[in-house]
Amino acid sequence: MNWFKQKSYPRFWDVYMSHFSKLQEQNPKAIRFVVFDTETTGLHIKNDRILSIGCIAIENLQIKVADQLECYLKQEQFNAETVKIHGLLKQGKLTKIEESEAMERFLAYIENAVLVAHHAAFDIAMINNALKRLNLPKLKNKVLDTGHLFQKTKLDTSKSHFSLDELSKRFHIPLHDRHTASGDAYITALLFLKLLSKLNTNSELTLRHLERPNNRVGLI
């Protein structure tokens, strides 16, 4: 009956898991956030593949340019349609690595950081599927979605979905390097800091507060 026995995972996964032994810090100033973005062959989370991952860290609410990760992945799958968006060719000049290596680097980089992405569900699902292909469990990190955080500001309730372009324009963030994973991660990081200061009216903002769904009603 060995299905009760815990599966054995590669060492890098154990290292990654070891970062979660401590209690989650709640004060945003003390949290390491990793803002990330993925460029993919398409929008289908099962069939499409990650082409690049860009990450940048925020500590003490400052963007740490030195603490970043940028990698390009080798993928069999190729979609001529999305090349126009991200500009990543199948045979580009960029140094590409295997998906397995990318995941290993990604996990080693993020540790127990709180992950932040715009419409994070998609990027998280893409990463989780890549992990699944390596027979690994899902990400354990807490996740914040800048789309969701914008809803919480109640600055514009006319619709429930705002693109990164729309929000960048609204918050006067210059759109450099849009549609490169790192460029989008950086734009998202700025957006995240701006959203935090909008939400941080009582200066006692906690991670728990940020995670709370914005339409939650009832007794607290």
Binding site: Q62, I63, V65, A66, L190, K194, S197
Partner: peptide
Amino acid sequence: ISQAVDVIYLEQDQ
């Protein structure tokens, strides 16, 4: 230098 920059966002009056 550019690689080691920290980026800080400040609201008006902060």
